[in-house]
Design a protein around this nucleic acid. Structure first.
Lengths: 141, 141
DNA sequence: TATTGTTATACTCTATAACTATA
DNA sequence: TATAGTTATAGAGTATAACAATA
């Protein structure tokens, strides 16, 4: 009989749940040819026109060195445009085709998140989300 | 003012919480020069002597192609030994040095998991773990 | 000096395909 | 035929170091 020494560990359960969710989201996003990180960035730009990529990086905890190629790909596909704010910063905005694609992304993510919520008892949902946020807001490496 | 379109999404919170937890665990495991996946495999072998690597893969949801190099590195470091069961399967066991290192790994993981639990209200812990397990047990991609 | 953005590089985990040897 | 294990390769996220240009 198999003995699982990990069943009572929240960190391990967190890892497995996140991996399952991300694998599913990745597959769902293939229809718009976006990675999860790219889709997330589009949503943030839509809600925050003229945000800079360093501000996005701070909000999503993505290092600057990793933001550059992500934003670069979105710009190359004409989903976003970069408008110089000063000599070194650029405000980011969705283009028309970026806006159109972002609407599709929002539907995909909404369906995805609903599928997750369906697994969580309704009475637990708010507390569950609060526990997750507590884990990533002040869990310094 | 920054607007965060992701705050109410459990999938996004899951991703961030898992990433924070794994970054922390990775750093904590540098003292034993193990990756999180390698440390996890050691714990499973300790609790299940003579388990095969395909059985470990099924339990941890790690593809066979990815198990091979993980187990290979542990064997190369003489932390585990492979005993042929039949012509194609090998039972895995900890060596003496593997057993010693696994005790250190268990302490590291216990401290890590306690740090996570400290962020979760005591009354929520069981339900929180059940929600996470519900997410990864039947959330097929 | 500090910040923005960039390039290069490496590590970890995951995914697919193709192959062998054995059951 | 199906399974156990392996190899090669690629994609995705993340990390550090170094750099140029600008504030």
């Amino acid at each position: 009989m198999f003995v699982d020494p990990l069943v009572s560990f929240p960190g391990y359960a967190l890892r497995r749940a996140s991996a399952a969710s991300m694998a599913r989201l990745s597959r769902e996003l293939t229809t718009v040819k976006l990675r999860p990180s790219e889709a997330t960035i589009l949503l943030v730009i839509e809600s925050n026109p003229d945000i800079t990529q360093s501000e996005i990086g701070q909000a999503l905890d993505i290092a600057g060195a990793n933001m550059a190629p992500l934003v670069g790909r979105l710009a190359e596909r004409d989903l976003i445009e970069r408008r110089p704010v000063d000599g070194r910063s650029q405000g980011l905005r969705l283009t028309d085709s970026g806006r159109t694609l972002t609407q599709r992304v929002k539907r995909i993510i909404q369906i995805h998140e609903n599928a997750l919520l369906a697994k969580i008892p309704r009475a637990q949902r708010t507390l569950f989300l609060e526990c997750l946020r507590a884990l990533y807001t002040d869990l310094l490496p």
